[in-house]
Nucleic acid binder design. Structure first.
Length: 662
DNA sequence: AGCACGCCGACT
DNA sequence: GTCGGCGTGCTC
């Protein structure tokens, strides 16, 4: 007997001889085997009676055989993971806590105390059961599927993140007796504090938490609980979807639209997509929910891949003894069209900000640019740009310097235009510092600035920043300002100072991002409040859909656009990025030769192109984007292309299947 | 991942 | 002349 073993390394499966007397059921077991000069734990992926003849001579023997850690379906899932993300099983295993698993298995064997521990029941539900009546149709659909013990995915478009959690807890309460293994995903660690206590109330000690900020020991502890069987309900961020549960009957993905589910290093998987596939392999029910679902997911409900759950009706809420769903905040388009170039805030918004703060409520100005402004030559109209990245440089007034947002390069404030040597360089456009300046001048009050990388040492009028009535911030302000554990909405109103900055980027997903960002802002505003969208293009179709919460109009229009330009979800993308250290001329040529070999009957190749790369070690990067309607053909061509690129041996290659930022 | 092999700069 | 830098290759 021979075994094909995967190691948590970037190596293919290796074949070993089994010692006589080894058990028959080797697949899914951990073994220890010699590799190079050392001995390493690996996973038996398959067995064979007759290996390739040429290997027979130098084949080595398995040294130690341990227990099973994976079922046949878990192995199939690992193979899919490696395959789909154009990687190796070893790399997939490494992302799937294999090292922690093998450590734990080997340690426990040595200590001689391996055995199934008993599971303790939870304390029972604490949330009032009558609430769940409102969710009846959605709830019934999910529960019925779960009881069938077969794979199905649902998409729930919730009215608020509270509703998302409510359907989840309702489902888990109803399925309490039948749930055997569950994974609940949230996009960011901060969200865990809202959901973990609720799930712990239901399932007690069966719950464990898994996220990337846990230390080595904590991760090892969580993995030990999971593989020993004492914990079968895992709540966590992206990586929790790979938790080594033996059985999974239910998977939930909250805020499924979030780009945080996409891994940006290592195996670049999308936690939401992996959740769906894991559900498929484990015959689990998958519940995706969001206050603003991704265009992909809505498309998937259209083609029958997911089931769209019915919204909670006003009627249903009344029948359940609930008050009518409160009014949502108003979304108002404010035109800056025709205003002077030095005006960054419409009088209407300033007036409302004064009004809001006068009533002891808070007002947030969201600004999507850093620093003070760009600099433009008054003579020739050219904007100061970064010499290496060719993006406009940002002027920081306080420090009197120009910085490149891309490479971080800093330049002394120039006295004259780089283009025509004109001496009049004027501020143009507004960043967060310039908006703060204008807010303070117009409202004659101090404003708090919240920005990533800027210490929050500013204490407003002697009290804590939590109370500052006027706040100017980037999107980052969301995480900071939300009061812990409170259901109260932090703001009376929010203004997107320049929504056009979100609508004019060269990315086919920009409208989707914009609506998601606006809906996230809506969640932070009191129901009687307003979200202002300041724009110089008030007739923009997307803004008009968003203003009236017309989601179906939005998705219909967006899908038709995606179809017209053959963008996802109507096509699939695979992106190769090759960072380069010096002049890429020659390399570019060689890559050109590789990509020229692609069979373009089904697959489109864009590039290679040289682009700036955000790193000190590398000067730039070369990108090749492959695109196709046919997923299988795309993967086949991409696999061949990757092999040929690897043959060049000039650079490391970053492979991104289903990239988000293109 | 580790460990070997291998080809160019500062040292006894 | 050697010691050692870490860039590429291999591990059943």
């Amino acid at each position: 007997m021979y075994v094909n073993v995967a190691f948590p390394l970037k190596v293919p499966l290796l074949t070993y001889i089994l010692p006589s007397g080894a058990p028959e059921d080797m697949r899914g077991r951990i073994v220890r085997a010699p590799l190079g000069g050392r001995s390493l734990a690996g996973l038996v992926m398959s067995t064979s009676t007759e290996p390739e003849a040429k290997l027979k001579k130098n084949m080595r023997e398995v040294q130690e055989i341990y227990q099973h850690v994976m079922t046949a379906s878990a192995i199939a899932f690992q193979r899919w993971l490696a395959d789909y993300y154009l990687s190796t099983v070893g790399t997939a295993l490494r992302s799937s806590f294999f090292e922690e698993i093998s450590d734990c298995v080997i340690k426990e064997i040595e200590a001689g105390k391996m055995g199934a521990s008993s599971t303790s029941p939870g304390q029972g539900p604490v949330s009032s059961p009558f609430l769940y009546g409102a969710y009846r149709p959605a709830l019934d659909a999910v529960c019925e599927s779960a009881r069938l013990n077969d794979y199905r995915s649902f998409l729930y478009h919730a009215g608020s993140s509270g509703e998302e959690r409510l359907l989840l807890t309702a489902t888990m309460t109803h399925l309490k007796e039948s749930i055997a293994g569950a994974v609940i995903l949230v996009p960011e660690i901060a969200q865990l504090e809202f959901i973990v206590p609720v799930i712990k109330d239901l399932f007690g000690d069966r719950v464990c938490v898994l996220h990337s900020k846990l230390g080595r020991k904590e991760t090892a502890g969580a993995i030990r609980k999971i593989i020993s069987g004492s914990s079968d309900i895992v709540v966590g961020t992206r990586s929790a979807v790979l938790a080594p549960l033996k059985k999974i009957s239910f998977i939930a993905v909250l805020s499924e639209h979030s780009s945080s589910y996409k891994a940006e290093e290592g195996l670049r998987y999308n936690g939401r997509d992996v959740a769906v596939m894991r559900g498929f392999y484990e015959k689990a029910t998958v519940l995706l929910s969001s206050i603003c679902p991704s265009v992909e997911s809505v498309y998937n409900t259209g083609i029958g891949k997911y089931v769209m759950l019915p919204l909670i009706t006003e009627n249903g809420m009344q029948n359940a003894g609930l008050e009518k769903r409160p009014e949502r905040p108003k979304i108002k388009i404010v035109s800056l069209k025709g205003s002077g170039t030095g005006i960054f805030l419409a009088p209407e918004i300033i007036k409302e900000a004064g009004n809001i703060t006068a009533h002891a409520k808070r007002f947030l100005f969201l600004v999507h640019r850093k620093g003070y402004s760009y600099l433009r030559c008054d003579e020739c109209g050219s904007v100061e740009r970064c010499r290496t990245c060719d993006v406009p440089l940002i002027y920081y007034k306080g420090e009197d310097v120009l910085k490149c947002r891309y490479c971080g390069g800093m330049h002394e404030s120039p006295g004259s235009c780089a283009n025509c040597h004109g001496s009049e360089l004027k501020s143009f456009g507004a960043g967060i510092d310039r908006v703060k300046e204008q807010v303070e001048a117009l409202l004659k009050a101090e404003a708090l600035v919240i920005e990533k990388g800027r210490p929050a040492d500013h204490v407003y009028g002697g009290s804590s920043p939590d109370l500052a009535p006027l706040v100017v911030g980037t999107g980052y302000a969301r995480g900071i300002v939300h009061k812990k554990g409170s259901n109260e909405k932090p703001f009376g109103a929010i203004a997107f100072q320049n929504i056009d900055a979100l609508l004019l980027r060269p990315d086919f997903r920009l409208y989707e991002r914009a609506i998601q960002e606006i809906m996230a802002a809506v969640q932070m505003v009191r129901n009687d409040g307003t979200v202002f969208l300041q724009t110089r293009m008030p007739q923009n179709k997307m803004l008009r859909f968003i203003r009236s919460y017309d989601f179906s109009g939005f998705y219909r229009h967006e899908l038709s656009q995606r179809k017209e330009f053959n963008n996802p979800p109507y096509s699939r993308l695979i992106l190769f990025t090759l960072p380069v250290r010096n002049e890429p001329g020659k390399l570019l040529n060689e890559i050109q030769k590789v990509t020229a070999g692609v069979d373009t009957s089904n697959v489109e190749v864009l590039g290679p192109v040289e682009l700036p790369y955000h790193s000190k070690k590398y000067r730039s990067c070369i990108r090749v984007l492959m695109k196709s309607k046919d997923r299988a053909a795309l993967h086949d061509e991409a696999r061949v292309t990757l092999k040929n690129l690897e043959k060049l041996k000039i650079s490391k290659i970053i492979v991104d299947v289903d990239p988000i930022e293109v």
